[in-house]
Simulated assay, not measured.
Amino acid sequence: MRLRTVRTALAAATAALSAAACLTAAGPAAAHPNGSWENACSPSVSVRGFSDALDKTTYENTFVGNFSALAPHRDGTLAALSDRSALFTLDARTLRPRGVVPLADENGAALDSEGLVVDRDGTYLVSSETEPSVRRYSRDGRILGRLPVPDALRVAPAGRAAVNGTFEGLTLLPGGRTLIASMEYALSGDSAGIVRLQTWNRGRGGFTPGAQYAYRADAGLGVPEVTATPDGRLLVLERGFTAGVGNTVRLYLADPRHATDVGGTAYLTGQDGVRLVGKTLLADLADCPDLGATAKQPQPNPLLDNIEAMTVTGRGRGALDVLLASDDNQNAAQTTRFYSLRVRANG
């Protein structure tokens, strides 16, 4: 059940990461004299291995899959969120489930749970794209609170968001004071591809809405996940699907620190003076070596699937250890697959 082509081990995380211990690969990807990486997808990204060990399995009568988010616990295990209201704890080395907690809204209804943060006190912040919402849950799945959401980001007719197009990514910046949620697609009235990133600032009374930024996704793609890097930038997944062709999955490095706060801008249609979140392509994952992976449906690279979850698990020697997971949608033509990457985020 280990990631293929590499060994894995638990290692102490650096102080800049929110977890004290998490999954890391046993050493960096091998560098060749010409500067390329072994199993390189690009000069910035190498794929260290993958695992299909959890595909179409169950644990305690719960389907293991539909993964939409990952986050490290302080004890070195991994939290893995299903978009069907289940929160798993996984062994970081073997990926075997160690526990599962059901989640629900205030009325006991299931969530379309998409984003996940393990906060510094061990509680969970979970986004649902149904409304959308961000709720805080106890370790045993009790609702402890709910964050305010700007009206425009709500699903129409309450707001201007499309169904299944709201909060997908959720991440906490280093220091724990700023939370960021990414919309998957543009609001009605905004230019196509302009995705809003909503922030909340932590104060004595909890999180309150902060600045909002605009990020331009590539044509035809949405944003299923964002993850903070130790220096306060973001790793951003962009993803799309074309029937008969397969998935497009690209990894970007984004920097919101110099972007315009667009929270007061009703419609983003290319106005002068609006500075978008800057982004740099790290890799198109179709360019990765396939490592012998197989696909159940057409893909530009058989390694690809519906990749939706991402977390940083460690860093060292100028690179980050990044773990991805795909959402199989409980579909026979898709796979629950984990990917171990090394990412140079120095751009």
Rank of each mutant, 00 (worst) to 15 (best):
G159D: 09
A333M: 09
P174S: 11
G176Y: 12
G27S: 11
A71H: 05
P148S: 13
R196K: 09
L253V: 07
L144R: 11
F88R: 03
G175D: 02
G165C: 08
V226D: 05
V45I: 13
D55R: 04
G316L: 03
S191A: 15
S128T: 14
T62W: 03
L144I: 07
L78V: 11
L54I: 11
V126T: 10
G278T: 15
L187I: 04
N201T: 15
G220S: 09
A152G: 00
C22Y: 00
R154S: 11
W200M: 07
K296N: 15
V343T: 00
H32M: 10
V100I: 14
S18M: 07
G76V: 05
T14Y: 05
G27D: 09
L291C: 11
R2A: 14
P230V: 07
D55V: 04
G220H: 06
A192W: 00
L116R: 11
A309M: 06
T178N: 01
L235S: 02
G141E: 11
E114L: 04
L170H: 01
N201V: 14
A16R: 13
P33F: 08
D290E: 14
I307L: 13
D284S: 13
L81C: 09
Y213G: 05
F88C: 08
P28I: 10
Y252L: 13
N34T: 13
N61E: 15
E38V: 14
P298S: 10
R315E: 15
Y267D: 12
R342E: 13
R93K: 14
T94V: 09
Q198R: 04
G278K: 10
K56A: 15
S46R: 08
Q297S: 15
P256I: 04
S138N: 09
K56T: 07
L235R: 06
P224N: 11
G122K: 04
A211P: 02
D290M: 06
L70Q: 02
A243V: 13
E238V: 05
D218K: 11
A293V: 09
A20C: 12
R139Q: 15
Y124S: 01
F88L: 06
H73W: 03
R177F: 03
T208P: 01
S82D: 12
G205F: 01
C22E: 04
V223S: 07
A211C: 01
E106G: 10
W37R: 14
A92W: 02
V277S: 04
G347S: 11
L17R: 02
